[in-house]
Write a protein that binds this DNA or RNA. Structure first.
Lengths: 133, 133
DNA sequence: GTACGCCTTCCAGTGCACTGGAAGGTCAAG
DNA sequence: CTTGACCTTCCAGTGCACTGGAAGGCGTAC
């Protein structure tokens, strides 16, 4: 499989695949006689793993760690569990912040609804914005 | 309040506060006779909002738009409402994404609990993260 | 034999959100 | 009068995850 085919099969741009190899996220690809990168099913699986892990919120560095642990022969399960737990905690904090911010925006929007547009000509500072808080 | 005091009160580094002013996220600060930036309570509040909104995943560009509504407010009411609505819609979308990601992580974490590291097959990278479906 | 699409490397840039450091001004304490 | 903490501007670098483009090689089709 050439890089373009792997790109098509995975949905990851060829450019990005080379970048992944460059930063050590993927091992150096096998080469054909002409110098073209050659990939097998395993490479596609690795790429899919990267996509899954990325979708789960892991950084490329963290994904590299998991792949590195794997290539050392140790099962990365424990490490992955730690990463997952870490990200769950982070996401919960993020959700709380997002909900708080939504409330703040909602308050602003509600206030906007109470303002009569007729009392807010285009050349005048909007009264929604003058409010303290 | 000088920039260092605002930094201490908000937890945002002075350097970052200047950067926020530079990119237009915060309005140009008042200056004392000696050229030092001078802040009031309102500035602290804006900074707190920035922190909340940022933790919620809004970009500084997006926060700028909302802050512009709050503090400058030169846009007509209709436009203000559109902006607020736009950001509410965006936040709701982010909330949905985040909740979906959380579910995915939760599923992975639950699966991780049931996996014996010794049983990680050689032909997959990690059976926790690489699952079909 | 040349047009075309794919491949190669290398270098550079993007966007976001900072962060560091140099060079210098201000101000109160010792 | 000096020390040290604070402040100023300006420029440059960091980390992440790409992305674009130049310059050139490879391979098949007409």
């Amino acid at each position: 499989m050439k890089i373009g085919e792997l790109a098509a099969a995975s949905g990851v741009p060829a450019k990005t695949i080379r970048y992944y190899e460059e930063i050590g996220l993927l091992p150096p690809a096998e080469r054909e006689a002409n110098g073209y990168r050659s990939y097998d099913r395993d490479a596609l699986q690795r790429l899919r793993f990267v996509q899954h892990a990325q979708a789960a919120g892991l950084t490329l560095r963290e994904i590299s760690q998991v792949l590195a642990i794997r290539s050392e022969g140790r099962a990365p399960c424990v490490h992955v569990r730690e990463l997952l737990h870490h990200h769950l905690v982070q996401i919960d904090a993020r959700l709380a912040e997002l909900r708080a911010t939504r409330r703040e925006l909602q308050d602003l929007a509600r206030h906007a609804e109470t303002v009569d547009p007729a009392s807010c000509p285009e050349d005048v500072i909007c009264s929604i914005l003058v409010r303290e808080g």
